[in-house]
């Protein structure tokens, strides 16, 4: 995702003369092409995220279109008050990009994990939360965030995520993308969990369960039309996210469902636990340790479908 991010901002900087990249002392060589083309619009702000975020607000207030970029926890919770007061309060067009979200940097330890960012940032008024699922969505999300011109948080994985979209889907912030149709259950993949969602659907298919899969790339604002449709048509609605179960996409769906009186017994949320992860291991092992594998997910869906007191029986 991050290579596509760098490539896309380089292309967009040609289209938007106001675009300014602010990086928190990361991405060595990643932005060489950008810097070569627009040396006056790239600033390494050092290891000082509070200032970087404030600088972005000043740029945006002066007609520029800044993008802040560093490792997710440092670009979100580290400088939360700057995001809240400098960007969201005056409703300025700043794009905050976190790279290495969720458990992408599992091996680096909990300092570099980011399992709370969606929960925290989505409470901020005016903020938009976008979690692209693959490199294609990263590119499209950046285009759409610039079109939107509002405070927007884009949550990236790291490099090497598989391409899911074989062609460009119709991408709009706030509107989910249906990837595969299915009639029994609906699986909403958030960000880099979309690949796992598709694997789960494939496994369910082997057991005779038809699963619809959508990319729920925007957590705020939620795609209410999509949610209303799947809650009325499907037996189960599953939310998969590489984020804490507290306050993330699943919680957002719960809040929406409670307000709209849908049958929330249909909802199953998969995410991280309310504890730090201490053990060594890369993303794959970390996900397995918290149950974020397609095998576990499809098994739990099958079990739920067989429960005698299910809302559809």
């Amino acid at each position: 995702m991050r290579n596509v991010f760098a490539k896309t901002v380089t292309e967009l900087s040609d289209i938007y003369p106001e675009l300014v990249m602010l990086a928190g002392d990361i991405g060595n060589r990643l932005f060489d092409s950008y810097k070569a083309r627009h040396p006056d619009r790239f600033y390494n702000c050092g290891v000082a995220e509070a200032n970087m975020t404030g600088v972005a607000s000043g740029l945006a207030a002066s007609g520029m279109r800044p993008i802040t970029y560093t490792i997710t926890p440092f670009n979100t919770v580290r400088c939360l008050e700057q995001i809240r007061l400098d960007i969201c309060y005056p409703d300025l067009p700043v794009i905050v990009v976190g790279t290495g979200s969720g458990l992408s940097y599992a091996g680096l330890g909990a300092t570099h994990h980011s399992m709370e960012d969606i929960a925290i940032l989505r409470t901020l008024p005016n903020m938009h939360i976008v979690c692209p699922a693959d490199p294609v969505e990263v590119r499209l999300a950046l285009h759409d965030a610039l079109r939107l011109g509002r405070p927007t948080y884009i949550r990236l994985g790291k490099k090497g995520e598989p391409v899911i979209h074989s062609s460009d889907p119709d991408f709009r912030i706030g509107r989910g993308i249906t990837i595969r149709n299915g009639s029994d259950v609906a699986i909403l993949g958030v960000g880099n969990m979309l690949a796992t969602a598709l694997q789960s659907a494939e496994q369910l298919n082997h057991h005779g369960v038809s699963a619809m899969v959508a990319s729920l790339h925007t957590i705020k604002p939620l795609d209410e039309e999509l949610l209303a449709g799947i809650f009325s048509l499907h037996k189960l609605v599953i939310v998969l996210e590489e984020h804490s179960l507290i306050g993330g996409a699943g919680s957002a769906v719960l809040e929406w469902g409670s307000l709209n009186r849908v049958d929330l017994r249909k909802l199953i949320c998969f995410g991280g636990p309310d504890r730090f992860l201490y053990a060594c291991g890369e993303q794959r092992e970390a996900r397995a340790s918290v149950g974020l594998t397609s095998e576990n997910i499809s098994q739990q869906i099958l079990s739920r479908l067989q429960e005698p007191d299910a809302p559809w029986s």
Partner: peptide
């Protein structure tokens, strides 16, 4: 001051 830096940078 950070915000002022951004305005001055613009």
């Amino acid at each position: 001051l950070p915000c002022g830096c951004g305005i001055a940078l613009a």
